[in-house]
Design a binder for these strands. Structure first.
Lengths: 142, 142
DNA sequence: CCGTATCCGATGAGATACTG
DNA sequence: CAGTATCTCATCGGATACGG
């Protein structure tokens, strides 16, 4: 088992170097973002916050995520203590995922992001359109 | 100019598909995260929030980011209306970056994330250690 | 049903060299 | 100083196939 992202040589540490950054605070933030800041983690946390408990395939359908990414991301979230996993050895087997207290606490800043997202997507969109339009207007010649 | 990520065929749209997700809310959140949710964007916003105005190389040194990623990320942030760029045609040239009002508003949820990050990195760390220890304990045989 | 293993294209990101 | 261009590699992520 190749341990998908366990130990990387200096200069490449899941996401970025930041080796010679002058800003130690940024390094720590970067470190946390490297752990729970990816898209799928955020979306899984949101889903679990909403529904309380979800089974593997329920999450899969809900998010439209591939089995592979769901499996990998859930394992990481469990490892980081944000998500609990409960296995029922029935036939067919059943596995339930839920937020731990740590996961619940993470849910709050995530929600803040989510709210901002909802409110400001239109602003971003119009900024883009304006930028792109102006860029077309003034090429080298013309 | 290959337009680094402008148009991708279905099944691959900067980050993820989410084509058949049952959850439309997740799709929107995913969309926003695809825009301003990457590590460098977040860290640049934090830096500008802290210092107000920064020049290109100042940001570069502060974050320990490569020229390439800084250039790309700043352009996206400017396009999305989060960052303003002011060019002074002096010799040598001088360019100043700062947050726009939209960028300032984004700074708040980002700060919430940052605070949570600072507070909970230790929790994540210990959860990891526990998880890894227990995993070693109970392999197939033993 | 709940995963894991493998294959493969797409994206992220540093290093380096060059221009105005 | 403030970038752009190119090269190279690591990681993300979907598709598929298989096992418990």
């Amino acid at each position: 088992m190749p341990q998908e992202g366990t130990f990387l040589r200096p200069g490449y540490k899941k996401g970025t170097t930041m080796a010679d950054a002058k800003c130690p605070e940024c390094q720590r933030i970067n470190e946390v973002l490297s752990r729970v800041g990816d898209r799928w983690s955020v979306l899984i946390v949101i889903s679990l916050a909403q529904y309380g408990v979800l089974r593997f395939n329920a999450l899969k359908r809900h998010l439209g995520i591939s089995q592979r990414m769901l499996s990998l991301t859930l394992r990481e979230l469990e490892r980081d203590g944000l998500v609990s996993r409960t296995y029922y050895p029935t036939i067919p087997p059943k596995v339930e995922y839920a937020l731990t207290p740590l996961g619940e606490s993470f849910q709050e800043p995530v929600k803040a992001m989510g709210l901002w997202a909802m409110d400001n997507l239109p602003n971003i969109d119009s900024a883009r359109i304006k930028y792109d339009t102006e860029a077309e207007q003034e090429p080298k010649s013309a």
